[in-house]
């Protein structure tokens, strides 16, 4: 089914189209929600809530991005709200110095270790890191989503990377 046909079905609240959309995106969205929340149960709640929003508000999808990107934005925002309810973000903001440096090295990083390390990051660091490095949002978009300045987003990202690198050394 083409994306256009899928959207037409969604606009008509067609259950088969809704199911197709869910099947097509549930893994990617669940994985994103899990990494942001760090909790499978909460990620499942986020996914359900986000897809309901998608189905109920499909009329407001303007087609300025792909439907996948639109769903992703909804999932990310829903996950952020869930994390925020659990614990306020950015409680652990640490200063970053201009002279600081992060070197990922030339050797491959084990994805399993990397995921463990990402999940052990404090909420604020993990959120910015995932939004920037995994989801590919710009600092401007991240700042808007999180209600912070672009500068805060950049410094949080760098601090997150520094902490992540330290954690990977420990894991290794």
């Amino acid at each position: 089914m083409t994306e256009q046909a899928l959207i037409q079905g969604l606009l008509a609240q067609d259950r088969a189209a809704q199911r197709t959309l869910y099947e097509r995106y549930n893994k990617a969205m669940y994985s994103s929600a899990y990494r942001i929340t760090g909790d499978f149960e909460l990620a499942a709640e986020v996914l359900q809530d986000a897809f309901l929003q998608v189905f109920r508000n499909i009329g407001s999808f303007e087609g300025r991005s792909t439907i996948g990107a639109w769903i992703k934005a909804i999932v990310v925002r829903t996950a952020l709200r869930a994390v925020e309810r659990r614990k306020p973000a950015f409680a652990e903001l640490q200063p970053v110095h201009m002279s600081d440096q992060v070197d990922w090295g030339a050797h491959p990083i084990d994805a399993e270790y990397l995921e463990k390390a990402i999940l052990s990051l404090p909420d604020g660091y993990r959120t910015v890191f995932l939004l920037a490095e995994v989801e590919g949002y710009t600092h401007r978009e991240i700042a808007e989503m999180l209600g912070v300045t672009e500068g805060t987003s950049k410094s949080q990202l760098f601090a997150a990377k520094k902490r992540l690198r330290e954690l990977l050394y420990v894991e290794a």
Binding site: V96, H97, M98, D100, Q101, V102, D103, W104, G105, A106, H107, P108, I109, D110, A111, L114, E133, F158, K161
Partner: peptide, 12 residues
């Protein structure tokens, strides 16, 4: 603030 070997991170 400097970042080296960003590709290694991206691959992982």
């Amino acid at each position: 603030m400097k970042e080296l070997n960003h590709d290694t991170l991206q691959k992982a």
